[in-house]
Computed example of a mutant assay.
Amino acid sequence: MILTILPLSSTAYLSAGPGPITSSPPIIPDNDETRKLLEQTLSSTEIEKEIGRITAEQAVLERKVEVLNKQAAAKQSAILDQQQRAGAIVRSYYMGERDGLLAAVLSARSIGRMLALYDYYEIIIGRDHDILRQYEGEYKDLKSTLAAAERSSKELAELKTALEEQKTRIAALNEEIEGGISASSDPESMSALLDEFTKYWENIGLHEVKTYFKALSSAMNHLPQFVQSRDGILTRKGMTYNLALKEEDLNEFLVSQNKLFQDFGFHFNNGNVTASGSSGGLTLTLTGHYSIESEPVNALMFHIDNVVFNGLELPESTRQDLEDEFDLGFYPEKIVSFLRATNVESKEGVLYVKLSISF
């Protein structure tokens, strides 16, 4: 799937703060060297955020591991007495020490004495069982705590490795950026452009990107109802349903959901989907693909392969964050609960989805 998204206004951009920002995006010279430096700067900015996230997560895990280890140590200390008592009971049964009690009950010469001895025998046996059950419960609890501490320690070690890798990566990237600045015809101007672009991306650009992703996600959430209400999109043949969504129907649907899409033109080509528009100075190009997934529910999930912002490719971490935050998938069960997607393809202006009945 390829989407090219262009905003409706070139003079007012959304930001995280109150009110519109009227500054235009930085003017980017049209050459490969500058574009590469800007893409590297974007990557550096996003890696810095990733390092911050990993560092915070590492701190949380370190505290968790410390608490779990303390809990395990306390439980190990508390269980020692129970372990000794339980061991003594098991040995007594193994050595036949309880057999004498039972023999005394059976050899009683009167019903009254036999009942008294049997009550005594039941009290001892019941107490033995209570001690063993208590020890078993505390032992399982200790094992669970130790396993949790081990998992957290392993996760912490993996985070530390990831953190070191990101630090090494950003150091090398920043070295390349510094080299590129020095090699440019005007290092001072290049450095200023990179700073300006970084601030623009952090304060405006990323928010704009998320604005369109949020609109698309919201629209996709209502697409099943549109498919159900529009005659001819969904047809049945035996135990199979066929969904044929025409590009003009999709365009009409999107505009009805959000006016942001009124300058869009979505097209279904052989093997991909494209959308394009021309308004303003901000552009966003999204490339991705669909996969049919069964868990946790059957769905056509959209995976982001490439995002280009104002002609610059965004780093992988940003693409993954966008995919995680905004669901652009299509869920057949929202049409009819027993429908399951089995195949998807696009060609000649139509998106085809094959659906089967599954109870």
Rank of each mutant, 00 (worst) to 15 (best):
I47D: 01
P25T: 07
Q58M: 14
G96Q: 06
L80Q: 12
G137I: 11
G126I: 00
I89F: 05
E66M: 05
T22E: 09
T22I: 10
V90E: 08
G137N: 14
T55F: 07
T11H: 08
L6W: 02
E46H: 04
L101T: 05
Y139S: 14
G17Y: 11
Q76F: 04
I28H: 03
L8M: 11
Q71Y: 02
I131H: 02
S77C: 00
T4F: 09
E48M: 07
R109L: 08
Y139K: 14
A12F: 08
Y94Q: 14
L38I: 09
G87M: 05
Q82P: 01
S44C: 01
E62D: 08
Y118K: 13
K49D: 02
T11F: 09
G17A: 15
G126L: 08
Q84R: 15
Q40S: 09
T45R: 00
I131M: 09
M114V: 01
R63V: 03
L80E: 15
D30Q: 13
I51E: 00
A78K: 11
K75C: 02
A74Q: 13
T11L: 08
L6S: 13
K64D: 08
Y13G: 01
A104L: 12
L38F: 07
S23K: 07
M95C: 00
P25G: 09
G19N: 07
P26L: 07
